[in-house]
Amino acid sequence: MVFLKRNLPLLICFVGGLFFALTFYSPTKFSSYSRDMGSNAFNIISAIGTFFGILYVIVYNVDRVRKGDKGFGFSLILIVALFVTFVSALFSHGEYLTLEGQLSGIGWIFMYMYVPLQATMFSLLGFFIASAAYRAFRIKNYLSLILFLTATIVILGRIPFVNDLYKLVAGQHAIPLSEYVSWILQNPSMIAQRAIQIGITLGMVVVSIKTILGIDKSWLGKE
């Protein structure tokens, strides 16, 4: 059991990791074929995983409805929505558009239900940015003051009437405010981002090597 749960996965990880790492250094057709096969194998595993995931959702929610748990109505809605979407997809042969270019059943559900729902959820971000700005942005010291001032320049520098106002004050030949905004984004902001990015990339290499060598076994849980 220990062999199947720990030693075998570690062996597969080591051999697989080493093999795919070596294919990177080998330009042969076999290498690129192996990488393609690896990618296809993952797609197949992922598809099977998704199938079981959906099965899990159905079983879990049917169980809730059967037991009459608190909020079982939501589970019922989920089951009905899943069934209707599945049947529509079946009747539309999985195509979103008919041969005449019209929306099929599944296409209609996608366009007029899925799209607005997704857009609504995404738009919440705008509201939460505002509440986070009010709640969390505290100017406690000179560093946070610098951050606030920089952010203000970037935000205001992109507002049309602020630009007009700036031109009135600074004169028509002054460097446009948008140039300052670009400078901030492409210099101070970029320096910090690149530094973090380099750190992240090095971290990735270390984690990868540790995992392949079996030094880090935490992804298997501990013994």
Binding site: I129, Y134, F137, R138, I155, L156, R158, I159, F161
Partner: peptide, 16 residues
């Protein structure tokens, strides 16, 4: 969006 962003600057100041 411009007005929204202006509102955010105002909210930061008000929050402080």
């Amino acid at each position: 969006i411009s007005l929204g962003q202006l509102l955010i600057v105002v909210l930061i100041i008000l929050g402080n």
